[in-house]
Amino acid sequence: MSQIPFLAIVLTPLVILALATLLTWVERRLLGLWQDRHGPNRVGPGGLFQAVADGIKILFKQDWIPPFADKAIFVLAPTIGMMTVLLSFAAIPFTAWSSIVGTLNVGLLFILGMMGLGVYAVVLAGWASNSKYALLGGMRAAAQMISYEVFMGLSLLGVVMIAGSFNLHDIVMAQTHCWFILPQCLGFLVFLLAGIAETHRLPFDLPEGENELGAGFHTEYSGMKFGMFFIAEYAGIILISSLVTTLYLGGWQGPLLPAALWFLLKTTSVVIFFILLRAALPRPRYDQLMALGWKILLPLSLLNVTATGTILMLRAAG
């Protein structure tokens, strides 16, 4: 039995990395379908091996460090980005019994803390590159991520208040009779928008806006270090989708099908929605992105906390 946690620690990051790599192919195929064009269809059945070909290309591509960069920090930045995302999965309960750290009492806080540390990756990448374009992209990314983490945390207060716990297992069990997406529809909307901004996904990919910044904070990166940023972004999509499933869609709970399959189906549905947003929406200006957060999402999240607290107090008094 002592080998089971060790195997979970070793296999979970490998599975997440494999899923993130596969997601690049899924995204291309779905974008091709929705935009009425061919996606990858040359390498393997349905272009399935295109993701493998891209991985091989990144592995063997020249890993160049600019002579004007701070080499130690330049290498450390993508490592931080990758590790914070992978560590966040340790507290996700995929079923009632499958979580690397077990029933962690502060599991939700642990994940928010790891996501907060991810800001260091983009800031250090932009600063260590010693490039004005990368630095500007890093500053944009830091402002965007720190701002939207505020709204993300506030949106989750309603879930914590209803469940009475930061334990993700307890939060899932509290949704046995009603998924939190119904009583917490406002918090769900704020969390989803904050999650899109946190992962730099379209339409909120301003830190990597090519029309202004080249490629944002990773402008000077190449080879596997760029690949780490790239895969970390797709792993972040899976992480946010898993959190949406756990916090608002009842987690692994569902009739007839096995628990793990329910979790997979719900998470996959949210991932597909992320991809659909890329196909459907244009990119706003940076000032519009920040205005959306501070002028709209912040009041909505505070309203959600106030309404939830009032209803709970009235129930307790009644």
Rank of each mutant, 00 (worst) to 15 (best):
I4C: 06
L11R: 06
L17M: 14
L23P: 03
L23C: 09
L23V: 10
W25T: 03
V26R: 01
L30Q: 05
L31C: 06
G32A: 09
Q35R: 15
R37M: 11
H38N: 14
H38K: 13
G44P: 03
G47P: 00
Q50E: 14
A51R: 01
V52D: 04
D54T: 04
D54H: 09
I56T: 08
K57S: 09
I58R: 10
W64I: 13
P67R: 13
F68Q: 15
A72E: 11
V75M: 03
I80F: 02
M82I: 08
A90K: 05
P93Q: 08
P93H: 07
P93K: 05
F94V: 15
T95I: 12
A96Y: 11
L104K: 08
G107W: 02
G107V: 03
L109D: 07
F110S: 04
F110M: 07
L117I: 02
V119M: 01
A121N: 00
A125E: 00
W127A: 07
Y133G: 03
L135F: 13
A141N: 01
A142Y: 01
A143K: 04
Y148P: 01
F151L: 15
S155H: 02
V159S: 02
V159D: 00
V159N: 02
M161I: 12
A163S: 14
G164Y: 02
F166M: 14
F166I: 09
M173R: 12
Q175R: 05
C178N: 12
C178W: 09
W179G: 11
F180D: 01
Q184L: 11
G187M: 02
G187N: 01
E198K: 15
E198P: 01
H200G: 03
L206C: 07
G209W: 11
E212G: 11
G214F: 09
G216H: 01
H218K: 07
T219V: 11
S222D: 12
G223L: 08
M224D: 05
K225T: 14
F226I: 04
F229P: 01
Y234I: 07
G236C: 05
I237D: 03
I238L: 15
V244E: 02
Y248A: 04
G251T: 09
W252A: 09
P255C: 08
A259E: 15
F263S: 10
L265I: 14
T267H: 03
V271Y: 02
L276M: 15
R285H: 12
Y286C: 06
D287F: 10
D287E: 15
A291Y: 09
I296Q: 11
N304S: 15
A307F: 13
G309C: 10
G309I: 07
T310N: 09
L314P: 08
R315Y: 11
